[in-house]
Structure formats: structure tokens, C-alpha cells
């Protein structure tokens, strides 16, 4: 889902440059959202990194213990093949985080590049923005489903399929920052001082995009994890043999009325992770952009 980016898309037209403060990092950590969101996210990352080493095998079948409710032995119960849900959920954290981070990184990188071009080269601006409008009109989930069904479901194609619909939102954000900043008197002074385009972009314009992009990246990360799980849930995501949270929940649908825990535990894990990312994003937004802080 991409709600958060949509807010940005609406607000993007009025982004102000952000003041750089030497104490920005300290301010950031003092923000409750950044602190608690960051802590929770750190815990999730630790679980993803080291968890699978400590739990049982997430794909080992155990036909005797099928659809068992949570217990001291099986913390989260077992699924219809008797697999340990706890082990699967712990392993699934890896998939979710990899997808979230990869989508955020790739879409920001590509969006930054295209957005700078659109903001600074007038002839291309119209064309690029029409293409972005077109891309934004296509529902993200359907676009991802189509891309995956054309190229086959692997971790890579899922990441690409989720990334593409996120790019236009980054482009719009970057472009609006560029358009605002390029009219600042200090940029005009640099033009008058004979500075060439690369220097102007690098020294005067690019730094203004960093803070809003960091915020945007956290929101993209959260929404990418949600999209990945939806794709998995619909059976259009990562191959079912990989225990991603979406896949675990997809398999639990049939047994929901008798074994709801199959869906609830990965659902809670996913919601907690996305919440951590979003809360951190809100906190970053408050500290990095004082103008929006007043608003949001």
C-alpha cells in the first residue's frame, strides 16, 4: 500500500528546504518516535539476522503435529503441514526486511536521478512528469501482479515489481525540492558567479533533497513490506516454498476458522515492523523538517 507516499505527493508541491543543524542527530534521537521506532526496528533486524540460527527448521514437516495451537513447545503453533510457525515467522523477518530496504534504496536512487533531471532540464520536465502521472494512475498492486506474472515470481522480480510504482512518488518529491531551491537567491548568486551545473546541483541543490528523501525512504520501506505481504497473500508473490510472512498467511487462509493463529502471528509481526518503520518516519519528519513538523 502506498498511502504515505500519496500524502507526500500532495504535499510535495510545497516542500521547503530544510535547515541543516549541527545538532540534528541529537535532536533526532531525542524524538520519541525516532527512538522507539528505531529500537523496535533494531530488534527486528537482530531477529532477522540471528533468529533463524536459534529456532528450529522453518520448512521441516511434521505430519503428527498438524494445526497445533500455540504451546510451550510450539510458541506460535503449527500449520497444516505441521511446520513450526514460530520458526517460519522468524525466518520471514529476513524476507520482509530485505524487500523493504531494497525497494526503498532502489526507488530512492532511481527517483533521485530522474527527479533531478525533471527539475533541472525544462525540455524533459513535461515528458517525464506525464510519464510519472501515467505510472501513478496504475494501481500499484495490479502493476506488481502483472509484472510478476509476466516475468515469473522470484525475490528479485518481486522487489522490482514493488519498486516501479514507488518511483514516481520519489520523482515528484525530488523535482519539487529542486524547483523550489533553484529559485533561491543563493542558487542565483552561484549562477551569477559562473558556477557550472554539476557544482550547483551537487553543492546547492542535492543537499536539500537528502532530508525529505530519508523520510520518504522510511515510508517506502514500510509500504513495500505491506505490498510484499499482500502479493504473497494473493498467491502472486515470492514462491510459496519460501516462508515469507505473506506466504505463511496465504497458506493459513483455508484454516482460518479452526487455526486463526497461522494468520495472526505473522500478521502481528508484520504490523509491528511496519509500525516501527512508520513511527520512525514520522519522528524523522518532525525533526528534519520544522515546517512540516508543525503540520503533521
Amino acid at each position: 500500500m502506498t498511502a504515505r507516499d500519496d500524502i507526500d505527493a500532495v504535499e510535495a508541491d510545497s516542500v521547503t528546504p530544510i535547515r541543516d543543524d549541527p545538532s540534528a542527530l541529537r535532536l533526532m534521537m531525542r524524538n520519541r518516535g525516532v527512538f522507539w521506532g528505531g529500537m523496535l526496528l533494531a530488534v527486528m533486524v537482530m531477529i532477522a539476522l540471528f533468529g533463524p540460527l536459534l529456532t528450529g527448521d522453518p520448512i521441516a514437516l511434521n505430519p503428527i503435529k498438524r494445526l497445533k495451537p500455540p504451546s510451550g513447545e510450539l510458541f506460535f503453533g503449527s500449520d497444516f503441514l505441521g511446520r513450526d510457525i514460530f520458526a517460519r515467522v522468524v525466518y520471514g523477518a529476513r524476507i520482509s526486511l530485505v524487500v523493504g530496504l531494497a525497494v526503498a534504496a532502489i526507488s530512492v536512487a532511481i527517483g533521485l536521478f530522474i527527479g533531478m533531471i525533471a527539475g533541472y532540464i525544462r525540455i524533459l520536465d513535461g515528458i517525464i512528469m506525464r510519464v510519472m502521472d501515467g505510472l501513478m494512475a496504475i494501481p500499484a498492486i495490479l502493476l506488481a501482479i502483472a509484472l510478476i506474472s509476466l516475468s515469473g515470481a522470484t525475490l528479485t522480480t518481486v522487489i522490482i515489481a514493488i519498486t516501479i510504482p514507488e518511483i514516481p512518488r520519489v520523482v515528484r518529491l525530488v523535482r519539487s525540492v529542486v524547483l523550489t531551491v533553484r529559485d533561491e537567491p543563493y542558487v542565483e548568486a552561484a549562477i551569477a558567479a559562473g558556477s557550472r551545473l554539476p557544482l550547483i546541483l551537487h553543492r546547492h541543490i542535492l543537499p536539500n533533497t537528502i532530508a525529505p528523501l530519508i523520510v520518504q525512504a522510511t515510508y517506502i520501506c514500510g509500504s513495500a513490506m505491506l505490498t510484499e505481504s499482500i502479493l504473497g497473500f494473493l498467491g502472486a508473490g515470492i514462491p510459496p516454498e519460501i516462508p515469507s510472512w505473506g506466504n505463511i498467511m496465504s497458506e493459513g487462509r483455508t484454516y482460518f476458522q479452526i487455526s486463526p493463529w497461522i494468520i495472526f502471528f505473522p500478521g502481528i509481526a508484520l504490523a509491528m515492523t511496519v509500525l516501527a518503520v512508520n513511527v520512525m518516519g514520522d519522528g524523522l519528519r518532525d525533526t528534519l523538517d520544522p515546517r512540516v513538523a508543525r503540520k503533521m
Binding site: P17, R19, D20, E184, P185, Y186, A189, A192, R203, H204
Partner: peptide, 13 residues
């Protein structure tokens, strides 16, 4: 060379 009106926006912060 030019000097602008707004002293708060004329220098890159």
C-alpha cells in the same frame, strides 16, 4: 555581480 534583497535566502545555509 548582484546583491539580492533577502539576506536570509541569499546564502546557502
Amino acid at each position: 555581480q548582484i546583491v539580492f534583497q533577502d539576506p536570509y535566502r541569499s546564502l546557502n545555509p
